[in-house]
Amino acid sequence: MGRPIAFFEVVSSDHERAQAFYRDLFDWRVAADPEMGGYGLVDTGAGEQAVGGGIGPSMQPGDTGVKVYVQVDDLDAYLDRAEALGGERLVPPTDLPGDFGRFAVFADPDGNQVGLWA
């Protein structure tokens, strides 16, 4: 069985503009959290089974863009597997605040960044 998309993220050098753009375009609700640097969790309004997301500020050069997060059961195993298939580990397993679990990021052989979430 395949692994589901669990989360999406938009990272921008002007996250407030990006939050307003997507909010106004798709009628999404964006709850920005000042304690998280203005990162905003997104409620698409599409129901409880919808994939949630976030829109936040760029933290380092090259991290802007749209990223999907795939739900996995073992971050390290999937990072190792990505590397074996020609990908590159970018962000090691990292704890998220609260009870949101952990995440990691790799680049596929074309340089597309993909997140993992456990």
Rank of each mutant, 00 (worst) to 15 (best):
D43W: 10
Q71E: 14
A31D: 15
H15A: 15
M1Q: 09
G45E: 06
V42Q: 11
P34T: 03
Y78E: 14
M36Q: 13
A6D: 13
V51L: 01
G98K: 04
D110S: 14
V42G: 13
E48I: 06
A6P: 04
G65S: 10
L79W: 04
L116W: 11
V68Q: 02
V10N: 09
G56T: 05
L25A: 15
Q60S: 13
F7T: 05
G87E: 07
F8R: 00
D24S: 13
G47K: 07
S13C: 04
V114Y: 02
E88N: 12
Q19C: 11
G86R: 02
V51W: 07
S13D: 14
L116N: 08
G98A: 11
Y39F: 14
L79G: 09
D108G: 04
P93C: 04
G101K: 08
V30A: 06
R81D: 05
V68C: 12
R29Q: 12
R23L: 03
D99R: 06
G87N: 08
N112Y: 08
Y69I: 00
F103N: 03
D80F: 05
E9H: 03
A107D: 07
G65Y: 10
T64V: 15
F7P: 05
F21N: 06
G111K: 07
E48T: 14
P97C: 02
D74L: 01
V30H: 03
V72A: 12
A6K: 02
A31P: 00
V68W: 13
V66Q: 06
Q19P: 05
P97G: 04
G87K: 02
F21H: 15
F7K: 02
G111N: 07
E88V: 13
A77V: 00
D99N: 15
A32R: 15
A18T: 04
V11E: 01
R23C: 06
V70P: 01
V91A: 05
V68Y: 13
V114L: 14
F26G: 06
D27N: 12
D95W: 03
Q19H: 07
A104D: 04
V11K: 11
G87Q: 02
S13I: 00
R23H: 04
D73T: 08
V66H: 07
Q71K: 14
D76N: 14
